[in-house]
Design a protein around this nucleic acid. Sequence first.
DNA 1: CAGAATCCTTCACGATACTG
DNA 2: CAGTATCGTGAAGGATTCTG
Lengths: 126, 126
Amino acid sequence: MSDTVHNAESDLLAVAAHRELLGQILDKWSLSVLTRLCEAPCRFNELRRAIPDISQKSLTGTLRRLERNGIVERRIIGTRPIAVEYRITPLGKTVREPIDALLLWASTHLPRIEQARSRFDDTLDE
Amino acid sequence: MSDTVHNAESDLLAVAAHRELLGQILDKWSLSVLTRLCEAPCRFNELRRAIPDISQKSLTGTLRRLERNGIVERRIIGTRPIAVEYRITPLGKTVREPIDALLLWASTHLPRIEQARSRFDDTLDE
DNA sequence: CAGAATCCTTCACGATACTG
DNA sequence: CAGTATCGTGAAGGATTCTG
């Protein structure tokens, strides 16, 4: 019996424990940065141009956070003027599969979700 | 040539398009609520007790958002006093697999990530 | 029991200006 | 080029109070 109960509790604990970690990787901009860096290593301003709506501050913050978690690597490739290259780490590459699964889910079910939204919004202004 | 380029661009567009959707499902509390509702249908205050740190306002908001996206269903099962039951929808069940993949990734690589964090933090106060 | 309404604080984020 | 520093704003979220 207590298998179900135990699993439920440990699942909730696991969720609580991993929510913070996932929040660092699945936040507002990380997904875009990660996607871009999976294509190829990239310079700072190159990333800025690739993600037009991101501010310089947010990009810096996102990169620092990903770097701290071992997902991307910051490599100084030149000085005068300084040049920095960001690239995805082996650890970072491993997260691509679950993320892609999630993106696939999103694009697969987007129509049904938009349908559900319309239904929900319609039944509100009655 | 433009295959790589095109894929990169469309990936970034896809990410931008799905970020909003995923944000509704992977936000601060949704994961906990979803995990709990996957176990069994649940009453409002039952959910509150199952997720001790959530406020009433946040739980209401989270449930409304999930309901709007067709992920959970709100069912009034009694009045006087009013009773409401929340349960996961068929659409909601389909998201469990990619989410579990992500949680599995998180728990699998947590040690390496904590290691990376320590290294990063250490090399700062030198 | 299941919320709605209100107040208040925190904080993420953008814009701007400056630097090695 | 690749940032740091500072300021201002809006939105999220908690605590509290009230209601059908």
